[in-house]
Nucleic acid binder design. Structure first.
Lengths: 327, 327
DNA sequence: CTGAAAGCGCTAACAG
DNA sequence: CTGTTAGCGCTTTCAG
């Protein structure tokens, strides 16, 4: 292994000069800098991160907890993760990936000083991890928005606004009775933060727009069709549909077309999903995009600010946009 | 921050005793061990990982490169990653996640001693990263199977066998002309290893079974339907379909049902996808499961062996299984 | 503008 | 069975 001492020797300078030449934390004469740089890539020197961490007490690593719980939208999770990784790399950080869904992994990596900060996904309205995060030395940012006092910075998509927007749009199209087909039962019962907020926005908008709305959990895949049929059996007067379930979406839309309830000419569906998912569904004419990648980069930006010393919590919500797809 | 010295003082022993009590690398009297353990959790001591790494020159971190390229099956990637993380945690390792698709990130983390080993996904038949990996001090395992000499350990699903199995089954059902609807164009042109092997198995089985097979790339989502229509327009005598494209699957199956070419009574489709994806498609009666989670754990096991000193490359392929779904 | 040297917190000889 | 101590490879004072 080639160390900073090898570089120093080769360049004919002291190791501190090499260190400073790399960090730029004090001025180095152009000539010296030149020789140091030449030595560095002649030897292929790469500083040992553990040594660096130990001396500087910072790791340049961010912990990212991305639990893969049942019912989550895989595309959304993946895109958020990619957004985080991509953005943090531009700032010189790597990502340590945790997949557990409790505070254990978080505490372990934080207390072992393996990370400079933590990013936590899939937040529940009343999330037990928040207390644990607050105890840590390292700053953290939630991707999601818990209920109640927000003592940690939060980044999320405005799901409440999206719920409201969907209703407004469907009402504008003339629909008087609207069903929200949302997340699977599991997601609802653990009160995943986005589901709660989406439902709230939906309900409030229905009241405001004077339309009748109903909220239904929705299983993934083909079973979703049965759920839809049951909903329509109970209330055949429903004509508008707000769908937020990536895995059920294609099946639901196909069924609605089959039933003659939805078509490009007579749209009855607003979907809430990543844009590429929406585009992959034929006859889906309008959707509100879940900007998953942007959520990841926004979270990365928030964490960067925390690392820079910012200390006020703060909530950032990315606003919803409705898109019409030409078919 | 509480250090090993604090623990030693509180327990009334030397720091080496504390260290050895934790690692078990030498015998400690029960009484001493007791006091050390008491001190450890009285103080909430957690060893500083960078210090540990520096002293022991091992990080207990594995680098996992999971490029999210266009056309990859997101569920498969996610499940493999989850399998890797889960399994490595049971062995005390954490995962550093890289999302780039070239050798840069790999070399950076390896040369900076940030990881003990590397796991690389989405391998192409002639993958440029292999040369880079071979240069590293750290061992590595490929999730995928490149063509040619295999100087690195490989773990994968037997896609060639799966291609063969699909054809045999469809031939058994009486199909004489079979279309393989596979990955999107991008995946084909970069010669992703699994696509090449699947196609080869498919072609060889067709020859052996004396059926006529044709291989078609297939776009994601709704566009897949157009591709299917075009294929059938060109050769209407095709009756059997082998589909390996998670994002196109529901649309293709729906279309085939619509055309009267597929039904539970007269099955014409074998899908290749994770089981939960298959289960989510109505009227899909048979599929070969891509055991993505198991691939992840198998890769983790292979890496563990490498870390244990194993040095022969070796290839492990998980065999395919055909499942019939009751509908 | 540059060097010398004191740690960072731990592991693993070495020495009882 | 336990203690002492020399590093691991950097960063960052302190001293020119």
């Amino acid at each position: 292994m080639v160390t900073i001492a090898d570089v120093a020797e080769k360049a004919g300078v002291s190791i501190s000069t090499v260190s400073y030449a790399m960090s730029g934390k004090r001025s180095i004469s152009p000539a010296t800098r030149e020789r140091v740089e030449a030595a560095i890539d002649a030897l292929g020197f790469q500083p040992h991160q553990a040594a660096r961490s130990l001396a500087s007490s910072s790791t340049n690593v961010i912990g990212l907890q991305a639990p893969l719980r049942p019912g989550v939208d895989v595309h959304v999770v993946m895109e958020i993760v990619t957004g985080v990784v991509t953005q943090m790399r531009t700032r010189g950080y790597d990502i340590l990936l945790l997949t557990g869904d409790d505070a254990h992994g978080i505490e372990r990596v934080a207390r072992g000083s393996m990370v400079d900060a933590l990013l936590v996904m899939d937040i529940e309205s009343d999330d037990p991890r928040i207390a644990a995060l607050s105890q840590l030395e390292q700053p953290s940012v939630l991707i999601g928005l818990p209920a109640g006092r927000r003592n940690l910075p939060c980044v999320d998509f405005d799901f409440e606004g999206a719920g409201w927007m969907a209703v407004s749009h469907l009402a504008e199209l003339g629909h008087k009775r609207i069903a929200l087909l949302g997340s699977p039962e599991e997601v609802m019962t653990r009160h995943t933060s986005y589901a709660d907020r989406r439902d709230r926005g939906f309900a409030e908008a229905c009241a405001s727009e004077k339309v009748v709305g109903s909220v239904h959990p929705c299983p993934a895949g083909a079973d979703a069709v049965d759920a839809l049929d049951a909903i329509l059996a109970e209330d055949p007067s429903i004509t508008g549909f707000f769908i937020h379930n990536e895995a059920a979406l294609p099946h639901l839309v196909a069924r609605l077309v089959e039933l003659g309830l939805h078509s490009a000419e007579k749209p009855a569906v607003v979907a809430l999903c990543p844009e590429n998912v929406a585009l992959s569904v034929p006859t889906l004419t309008e959707s509100i995009a879940v900007p998953a990648f942007a959520m990841g980069t926004a979270a990365a930006d928030a964490i960067t600010e925390m690392l820079g010393g910012a200390r006020q919590p703060g909530v950032r919500l990315i606003p919803p946009t409705l898109t019409t797809h030409e078919r």
